[in-house]
Design a protein around this nucleic acid. Structure first.
Length: 251
DNA sequence: GACCATGGCATAATCAGCCC
DNA sequence: GGGCTGATTATGCCATGGTC
């Protein structure tokens, strides 16, 4: 592999810079013809003019080499600064809090761009956690509602499979009265659930179910209603008996 | 405060010479 | 031929001083 070929493979720069580098490749082909005793032959330290003719020639070429090398270095440094600046510009475009809020072209300092970018990343992290919590809560609600639904389905199946003896069954009118009493009482509490929007309704319905639809509450309502119905039936029966007695007295 | 030029420094890659 | 070593070079980062 020749010296120039080795340099071309090493650079990986843009074409312009690559040409520039090629131009100041040393004509002495350093690295290929040096001897151990000529170690610092073209180093940066020997730019002073030497005493003999050979050293003087080397100094002249070194001066030219140094200038070209300085130019290349400046160019590379410029490229590096451009890349950094491009990064800051991209950051300012991406982060909403870094964007100027007026048309005056106001530009934040680099320190502010970094600071506000850090704040924005923190904000995004908080939002992520919040959304994960909300998702988890909704998942729990779905699970609870599924359990309740399964419970009611089981109750319904059991009721249909075991309707009970004929004489023990309530009349449709009695069923309606029980059903009506339960619904009226439940509605009294249900209407206090906030329903300004769907979210309020869904988040309020679970606590309501847990507080007002417990089995012992429903049992109490049922018991009260049945007692009331029995009382009414008893009074009705007495009234009919009295009417019957009165009718027989007149006959 | 941003930008630029410059020099210093560290590191990796490459090459030639030397030795086994 | 392959490993080791020293020299050289490219590259990138950082510090400094000057300018706008």
């Amino acid at each position: 592999m020749s010296d120039n070929t080795a340099k071309e493979e090493t650079f990986g720069m843009d074409h312009e810079q690559e040409l520039n580098i090629k131009q100041y490749s040393r004509c002495s082909s350093a690295g290929s013809t040096h001897t151990p005793n000529s170690s610092a032959h073209n180093s940066d330290d020997d730019d002073d003019s030497g005493g003999d003719a050979r050293h003087s020639t080397a100094a002249n070429s070194t001066l030219s080499y140094k200038e070209r090398r300085r130019e290349a270095h400046t160019q590379a440094e410029q490229k590096r600064r451009d890349a950094i600046k491009k990064g800051y510009d991209s950051l300012q475009e991406l982060v909403p809090r870094c964007q100027p809020n007026d048309s005056s072209g106001y530009k934040l300092s680099k320190a502010l761009i970094l600071q506000k970018s850090i704040e924005y990343i923190g904000y995004l992290n908080q939002q992520k956690v919040k959304q994960e919590d909300e998702g988890s809560a909704l998942q729990k609600e779905v699970t609870a509602l599924r359990i309740i639904k399964n419970g009611y389905e089981n109750m319904l199946q059991h009721q249909q499979a075991n309707p009970g003896p004929e004489e023990a069954r309530l009349t449709d009118e009695a069923k309606f009265q029980v059903f009506q009493a339960i619904l009226e009482e439940m509605f009294d509490t249900f209407q206090h659930i906030p329903m300004d929007n769907f979210k309020q309704l869904t988040t309020g319905i679970i606590p309501w179910l847990e507080e007002h639809c417990k089995p012992h509450i429903l049992r109490n309502i049922l018991s009260r209603t049945l007692q009331q119905m029995a009382q009414e039936a008893h009074e009705k029966q007495q009234q009919q008996a009295m009417e019957q007695e009165t009718g027989e007295g007149f006959s």
